[in-house]
């Protein structure tokens, strides 16, 4: 569990970005935590705090009930427990050939060469990018680069995976594949924290939500409750997920994803009668 206790953070004095944030990620048995907020509210800043790259100016962060130890060794351990994939894949990818880049973290851990090969192959297969193994990064599409960036962190087998804006710049197909990828990772026990302002995407994949506005969590909760106040969401420069709108405005049941809606036989029968 990752616990934030009255976390404050400022890049410059008197200009706070995160203000008195408290939360317990993973407490309620939720495995996919979503941090939702508009541009510039501090999502990326929060993530950098969670992995110890930025140090809170107030309050503290506990990982499995231990405060983060900011020594070199402590941070090294923390990053094996919490992996982070940045918003911009180009930033994350360091080497020019896919397999070298994915192996980089394992080299840093001094994992033996044949085990590195094995683990890299496994991850590439899992993310369905085996055919990219020997390709130079610059010939990849945005979605493929995102996967390579994720693979480079997943090889660490960290308990938590932080994905900062994983759908930024992806086309509808890329987005769909990202949803599937996240669902797959969750099914094999990966705990994930996501940040995004793509409400419908977040609604589909996350099971617990925090809404960030001007550096503060203004609301948190599960799918069923966190999006019920449309006015508040609009004020936060966000919107309601369309399934919640359909639920509130047309009084349909609250579906947790699109497939559920389209598979609802009772609803179909009712609609058929209207004709």
């Amino acid at each position: 569990m990752i616990e934030l206790k009255h976390l404050d953070f400022a890049y410059e004095k008197n200009h706070p970005i995160l203000k008195d944030i408290s939360a317990k990620f993973g407490e309620t048995g939720s495995n996919v935590v979503g941090v939702i907020g508009p541009n510039g509210t501090g999502k990326s800043t929060l993530f950098l705090n969670l992995v110890g790259m930025l140090k809170p100016t107030g309050g503290q962060i506990l990982v499995d009930d231990q405060p983060i130890n900011y020594s070199k060794k402590g941070l090294n351990q923390l990053r094996q427990k919490i992996g982070i994939v940045f918003q911009n894949s180009d930033q994350q990818i360091f080497y020019s050939i896919v397999k070298d880049d994915v192996a980089f973290a394992l080299h840093n851990l001094n994992v033996p060469e044949d085990e590195i090969k094995r683990r890299v192959n496994t991850i590439l297969r899992e993310l369905d990018i085996s055919e990219l193994k020997d390709r130079p990064i610059q010939y990849l599409s945005g979605g493929q680069k995102k996967r390579v960036a994720i693979a480079g962190i997943l090889v660490l087998n960290s308990e938590w995976l932080l994905l900062d804006e994983p759908t930024a710049g992806l086309d509808p197909d890329g987005k769909r594949r990202m949803v599937e990828l996240i669902k797959h990772l969750v099914s094999r026990g990966q705990k994930i924290i996501l940040s995004s302002h793509d409400i419908d995407f977040m609604y589909e994949v996350c099971d617990y939500f925090y809404i960030l506005r001007d550096g503060q969590f203004v609301k948190s909760g599960k799918k069923e409750t966190v999006f019920d106040d449309e006015k508040m969401l609009l004020e936060t420069k966000l919107d309601q997920p369309w399934l919640v709108k359909v639920h509130q405005k047309l009084h349909l049941p609250l579906y947790s994803n699109e497939e559920e809606l389209f598979a609802d036989k009772a609803l179909r029968a009712k609609l058929a009668k209207l004709e």
Binding site: L48, V51, M53, L75, N76, R79, Q80, G83, I84, F86, Q91, Q92, F94, D100, A103, F104, A105, H107, N108, L109, N110, E113, I116, G152, I153, L156
Partner: peptide, 16 residues
């Protein structure tokens, strides 16, 4: 940040 996330410790280890 990117190097830190991948546990870079100041030495480039390159595989065969």
């Amino acid at each position: 940040y990117a190097l830190d996330a991948k546990l870079y410790d100041g030495e480039f280890k390159v595989g065969e």
